[in-house]
């Protein structure tokens, strides 16, 4: 565990209402640099809603958050991506008809600069940049463990590979915080185990990871700290061992079955 006192993300009293329904209320938490932070909770607890607020897809109804020292209230997705939050989606959202390599290359967009004139003139700077994009994207594909050729269409990859491709695409944006929305959903035991290794490697490379997961075993074995949401409220936060014993958590989530 490499806890530093440095805080990467701090939310303060974030609330989100959909009409009369309060999906999130008063969620205050912080994520430290270099940790794997787990977000768990029963279905409908507001985990993905919080994710969407943090990545700019939703505007919070109340509260705000600080990321890497800058305050955000109503962020736009591309602004937050530029600031360094990259995400994957619960229901995989790849560019299905583009190749695996192109998917990752699109992730490099935010860190590269060639515009219309660069594209038209295709000058040295643009060519060098294109080469760097391709190279880095190839590296990322093998980094996440996609062995198939980069020219394979995203939609022709296996389910586990698609999940990994989403991670590679997110990593291509050079994030400070990698936010993963149920990356292990639908994976078998082997795939989950190698995902766990991948996430540890990513953490060790210095990228902070925010993880929503249903697989409690994975969360408990992987996360440095965990927050539990229930009905849009944070009911517990701390190291996994401590959260596991929290009576409120047991009542809300772990007590319900043998998950």
């Amino acid at each position: 565990m490499r806890h530093t006192e440095d805080i990467l993300l701090r939310t303060s009293r974030i609330g989100k209402k959909f009409g009369g329904l309060s999906a999130l209320s008063d969620v205050t938490l912080h994520i430290q640099r270099g940790e794997i932070y787990g977000l768990i909770g029963p279905n409908g607890a507001g985990k993905t809603t919080l994710f969407n607020v943090l990545t700019g897809l939703y505007q919070p109804s109340a509260g705000e958050f600080q990321f890497n020292g800058a305050p955000y209230r109503a962020g736009k997705p591309h602004v937050l991506a530029r600031a360094g939050i990259a995400r994957t989606f619960q229901n995989i959202r790849l560019f299905a008809n583009l190749t695996a390599l192109e998917n990752v290359m699109i992730g490099r967009h935010v860190r590269t600069r060639a515009g219309v004139f660069g594209a038209l003139l295709r000058n040295r700077a643009t060519r060098d940049e294109e080469r760097a994009i391709t190279e880095r994207s190839r590296e990322l594909l093998s980094y996440v463990g996609i062995e198939k050729p980069g020219q394979t269409l995203a939609k022709h990859l296996s389910y586990g590979e698609q999940r990994r491709l989403e991670i590679a695409r997110a990593l291509a944006t050079d994030p400070l915080l990698l936010a993963l929305d149920e990356p292990a959903a639908g994976m078998n035991a082997t795939e989950t185990a190698s995902l766990k290794t991948l996430l540890q490697t990513i953490r060790d490379s210095g990228i902070t990871v925010l993880l929503i997961e249903h697989d409690v075993k994975l969360i408990m074995g992987l996360c440095d700290r965990v927050a539990v949401l229930d009905y849009g409220k944070k009911i517990a936060e701390g190291v996994p061992e401590q959260v596991r014993k929290d009576p409120a958590v047991i009542a809300a989530y772990l007590g319900g079955g043998d998950e």
């Binding site: 991506a81 989606f89 560019f95 992730g107 860190r111 590269t112 515009g115 940049e129 944006t173």
Partner: peptide, 22 residues
């Protein structure tokens, strides 16, 4: 080009494209 890829990303999935910083 980078621009063309970004256009294709928007065509394929606008939400994912914006989440990737486009």
């Amino acid at each position: 080009s980078r621009i063309g890829r970004a256009w294709m990303a928007i065509r394929e999935d606008e939400v994912a494209a914006s989440a990737m910083g486009i």
